[in-house]
Nucleic acid binder design. Structure first.
Lengths: 201, 201
DNA sequence: GATCATACGTACCGATCGGTAACATAGTCA
DNA sequence: TGACTATGTTACCGATCGGTACGTATGATC
């Protein structure tokens, strides 16, 4: 019979226990689908199969759990956003359009709920909310990233093109939940191509 | 001394009394600034200087009050949106750009809160909510209106151009609250012009 | 001045909100 | 085995949620 080794390797500084991870995943799903304000902590712990004290030992408050959810969301976003780099190395335009194509598809599915980060900013107008801070920091990062991609494309005015593409992105997030399957998000790719074409020197 | 005539003219079927109107106005301001879910009915009636029963005598529920708020919001929107018609009769492009210019200005002010209708859809993902229904109906109307304006402009593909402009609009609503004064909304006019130019035959 | 409808306020409802104190249990290492 | 730590559980807190039963003030009409 083999020796039972500990589940967490020796130099693991921050291995989250089971309950905290279940809470995290459940909160992520519920917060995204229903909205943060709409979901109570009671429902989170019930659906996660744990109880409230388990939540509050791992997260300081519901607001902090929401912020954590958005940090996870951001990680997942970058993974999708950067997926095109492998397929199109050195081609910023193709990388960006790969993300746009995927987004246009997702945003025209029934039940699409937009960007969790943008939604959080809508739900929490006050600047002091931790979730809002995560979201705003992320969006600034995204904007800077778009600018550098537009520079790589050789845009006449990278900032203006990046702004335009960001407006299209955010517009797609919103329109995806406003309109159903035949929403304006279906034109995202065509419009983005037009805009990029018109912006190159 | 003149005969004191009744305040409401004879064939007035539904003249709202004073308290209901105060509630309406207070709700409109608070719902827009703070969000619908964030504001309780208690706070509305307190700030309006009335009491809860007064609210529930004029509105069936908080949800219905929220829907009423959005109906008012929609009226105000069309007033602004159609303001350009007087200045630029028969010139759909100039009418639209007039709205875009005003929006770009508002969306780059500190404390901008985006579109109340879009925000409501973010706050209430469930299709059955009365506020959401108002918002979605409005957005469909807006989309149709944009299509007809793009036809009037002589666009190659009016639907695609209208979609693109709608994405820019919604993106501006969102970006206005995400970024501060130097947000991407500042480029809205330039981008829209580029997109329209590229879409005419 | 009595009547009566309308409009408004006082006081309260049960439910749920986010959050916690106190205790029980399980795994780790001496 | 025994002490320590980490995690889970029961039961509860005050505050606030949306909503209402019921009594009161007001103002026009006869």
């Amino acid at each position: 019979m083999p020796i039972k080794r500990p589940e967490t390797p020796v130099p693991s500084d921050d291995a989250k226990p089971k309950a905290a991870e279940r809470i995290r995943r459940t909160a992520r799903e519920l917060f995204y689908r229903e909205g943060i304000r709409a979901i109570g902590v009671e429902e989170i712990v019930t659906r996660a199969g744990v109880t409230k004290p388990s939540l509050y030992r791992s997260y300081a408050s519901k607001d902090e759990l929401a912020a954590e959810y958005l940090r996870d969301y951001e990680l997942a976003f970058w993974k999708v956003f950067e997926a095109g780099e492998a397929d199109h190395p050195g081609d910023a335009r193709a990388q960006l359009m790969a993300y746009f194509e995927g987004l246009a598809h997702r945003a025209t599915q029934a039940g699409y709920r937009g960007c969790g980060l943008t939604n959080a900013v809508v739900e929490y107008p006050g600047d002091e909310h931790p979730a809002r801070k995560v979201a705003q920091t992320h969006k600034r990062k995204l904007r800077a990233r778009l600018v550098s991609m537009c520079e790589a494309m050789g845009a006449r005015s990278p900032e203006v093109l990046a702004d335009g593409l960001l407006l299209l992105l955010e517009g797609t997030y919103a329109s995806g939940q406003l309109f159903g399957r035949q929403g304006p998000a279906r034109s995202l790719v065509a419009v983005a191509e037009q805009l990029i074409d018109a912006s190159l020197r």
